[in-house]
Each structure stands twice: as C-alpha cells, then as structure tokens.
Simulated scan of single mutants.
Amino acid sequence: MPGNDIGLDLGTATILIYVKGKGIVLKEPSVIAYDKDNDEIVAIGTEARKMLGRTPENIVAVRPLRDGVISNFDLTAQMLKHFIKKICGGYFFKPRIMICVPAMITEVEERAVYDAAIEAGARRAYLIEEPIAAAIGAGIDISAPRGSMIVDIGGGTTDIAVLSLKDSVVSKSLKVAGDKFDEAIIKYVRRKYSVLIGERTAEEVKIRIGCVYPREEELSMAVKGRCLVTGLPKMIEITSEETREAFHEVSTSVLDAIHSVLESTPPELIGDIAESGIILTGGGSCIYGMDKLVSKHTGIPAHLADDPVTCVARGTGAALENLDKIPDGLLYIAKNKREQS
C-alpha cells in the first residue's frame, strides 16, 4: 500500500485510524499488556483491554496514554507500530501520519508524540490540535469569517475552542473528560454502598445508564463488586439518577471551562456562536443529556456532531489530504521541524 496517508486520533481510551480513501479502518482500546519479567508484549488493543484488572502478577495491562498525552513512550511506540502494521501490512513505503494533540500540549509532550510516530514507522509525522481536527471532522468551515465553537470531550482531555478564519481565537484544554466520569462512578459507589467496582464496570455503567441531565424515564443496572466491609462479592442496583449525582462535579468542571472560553470570546463571534450553536464531539459528549446541559448552562443551543466519536479521526485524515490548505498556525511539525524521508 504505497503512499499511505494515515490520520490518527491518539486517544487516552481509544485509538482510531483513518486511511485516505477508506475512512475509519481501525478503532481499538489504547491498552497494552506485557510480561514484566521479560518485557515481552502479550496483547494490544481489544485483547489487552479484556485483561484489565484480571492479570496474574507478572502480566501488566496498562494504558500508555494518560490525560491526552504519552505517559510511557516505549509502550506507546510499540502500540502504534502494531496498529500501523495491522492496517498497512509489511509496508515498503512508510506512511505519512497526522496525529491530533490536546490544544494546550507542552513542547515536551509534543516531541514525545512526534517521536513515537517516527519510531512506529512514519515517513513524516504532523501534529494538529484536537479542536481543529474535530471541527473539520464535524463539517465546520474553519476558513469562514464567522465564529464557531467546538467542545471535544475525549477520554483524557476536554478541548474547547472558538474558531474563525482558519485560526483558534480562544481555546482551553482541561484534563477532565471521559476517564473522570468513570472515576466518579467508582468513588460514588464506594462512598454510598461500600462496594468497590472496576474501571470496566464503571465505564459500562456510564455508557448504558449514565446521564448528566434528567432522563425522561429512569434506568437502572445491576452491578457486581467487592464489599469493602465483608470482602465478599456483592450485587447492587444503580440508577441513572445516581449517575447524574456522581457526575455533578465532573460535568460542572466542563461547564465552567466552556463558560470561561465564552467570557474571553469577542462580542461579534459570540453573536455567531449564539446563532449557529455549540458543536459537541468526542465520546464524552455522548453521555445522555450533555447537549441539553450545555444549552441550559450557556443559553446557547448545543448540538452533537454526526458520529461524534470519530469526528477527530475523520478531521485529522481530511486535514492530511489537504495539507496545502491548512495554515502553519494550525498544522505543525515538532518545534525543530525535523522531517525524515
């Protein structure tokens, strides 16, 4: 597959890969399992996720990305290499890769992402800010002289930006997103029921019955965990209203960040946003009622983008297909502009 162009959403929870002309070709958990006795990789992606919390002492299943950035360089590079090889086969011509990064990424974090892509086999690696990629993937014309607001709630970070004339006018990135919602459920169940549940169970509760705005019909779900009093297995029933209570602090942090960005936005652009609305992308935006909660808090209509989970990956791929149309201010290689051919 010579000359592959790959758009990559390097998410804390999930990795999505877009291939030019084919669309989204891979969606797998950002999890890798290895044997700590000999450093051999045991599983990557979906198979590794099944091992979370269920491994023997010598096997460690981890997420090598935390809060939207790389926490373990070597494991991230090996994970990327595995996924790239999976979609490209034994590629003879190395692909060009564009990776999205949080809006407020540091130079050191940026360098780590770039180097990991090169280490994984990229011929050239480009980085683009997540809210820009999300906006492109959501079909927003970022070149128009109009204000557009994007809120991308991923697994590790929430990126918020007001865009106009191909540039980010105001932006904010906070390390509060999908993972924090999972943690909130774990803490709530532990505090209220004295039961400890795992990350996977908490995520399932979030997806199936979680909400940040009252549902028209309350849902419930049976959950198994370990009783902290007896140490024995225990089954409890959790309701959707309880998840809303558990999510309150996390959702308030996201709302405060949105409000902060709006406060710093020029009046003319506020008028545009009030007319067109706030666009929500990312897996975290799929929690029931997120759009309604944002609308109620800001007084501005909020809309879920089409297929919000894949918006960033699709936008990253689209940007790579149109490199000549993306200004340097939005698209950048690592600071020293190092390229390898």
Rank of each mutant, 00 (worst) to 15 (best):
G23A: 04
A177M: 05
R244H: 04
L269D: 02
I44G: 00
P308E: 13
E242R: 05
Y34P: 00
I24S: 04
R190V: 15
E119A: 15
T230E: 10
D307I: 10
V151Q: 02
D306E: 14
D307G: 11
A43S: 08
E275K: 06
T316L: 10
D328M: 13
A318D: 14
R146L: 09
G289R: 12
Y126D: 00
S264E: 14
T106D: 07
G155M: 03
V25K: 05
V309A: 13
T55I: 06
G90N: 14
K337L: 09
H297D: 10
E203L: 07
V62Q: 01
K20T: 01
K85P: 04
Y18H: 11
I150H: 00
I41N: 00
D39I: 03
G271A: 13
E183I: 14
K325G: 10
N72Q: 11
I209D: 01
E199A: 13
P29S: 00
I128V: 13
I140W: 03
G317M: 13
A305D: 04
I99A: 08
R200N: 15
A222F: 15
I238M: 14
M98F: 11
T239V: 07
R111Q: 11
M1H: 11
T298W: 06
M221C: 13
I118Y: 11
K50R: 11
E241F: 09
K234N: 10
E183W: 10
M149P: 03
R123V: 02
A274F: 02
P308A: 14
S276R: 11
C88R: 01
S173N: 08
S171M: 10
L26P: 03
K206R: 15
T157K: 07
S285H: 05
G21N: 04
V113M: 07
K22S: 03
G231Y: 09
I44V: 09
T239C: 02
A313G: 13
E237H: 11
V261A: 06
D9L: 03
V42P: 00
V205C: 14
A144N: 06
K27G: 01
S220P: 07
L52T: 05
G53I: 12
E109D: 12
S71T: 07
G282Y: 07
D159G: 11
V162K: 05
C311K: 02
S164A: 07
S295E: 15
